[in-house]
Amino acid sequence: MLLKQIRTLILQETIIEWRLKYAINGILLYLISVIFISYLSFRSQVSSLNPVIWNTLFWIIILFTAVNAVTKSFIQLNRGRLIYYYSIANPAAIILSKVIYNTLLLIGIGLTGLFMYSLVLGNPIDDLLLFIVNLLLGSVGFAGVLTMNSGIASKAANSTTLMAILSFPVILPLLLIIIRISKNALEGLDWSASYGPITYLCAIDIIVITISTILFPYIWRS
């Protein structure tokens, strides 16, 4: 029952997104513009860009794009649709479908970002597989935290600012672990060096999603 609801909701979300292409196109353009701005700002040093800077800049770009992409999950829902969802669906199904949809969206953003970013700023990644695994796990965590915070912020005044204020400190531990793993991927360290951080990353993902599912009904009710 729950699974069926989740599937329907994800499908419906995707269809709406597909019909109103402006939202997803806007995010993609945002991503590409930011990457291009970074490229132009670094122009003279692109060839000698330090891998640490490359790494940090990449994740910060992804973070900001992710915040912008996920913000709309609840904030831009109009009242009519909210009431409609409220009357037909289980809150757990709603939050899980949003988290899964946003995870897919962020994976898409991450991969597009990686492609564009390496195109203009070079690609010093040594272990691409580890980098992609990290990207996938990171997207799950980002989607969990940001979707939940979008739900919280949508209930308050000046929600866009609030979204950033609430999310950044909460997302920081996640970001630090992700940057650490991707540094390992950049340097091509053996996977055994990354097992610890990967375990923590999975643990945080699980904590975030479990807690979101437990707490979301309380936001939803109001």
Binding site: V145, I152, K155, I207, I211, L215, I219
Partner: peptide
């Protein structure tokens, strides 16, 4: 909402 954020933030 504040209670929800408090619990969420504490666990992260």
């Amino acid at each position: 909402i504040a209670a929800v954020y408090n619990i969420f933030a504490w666990s992260t």
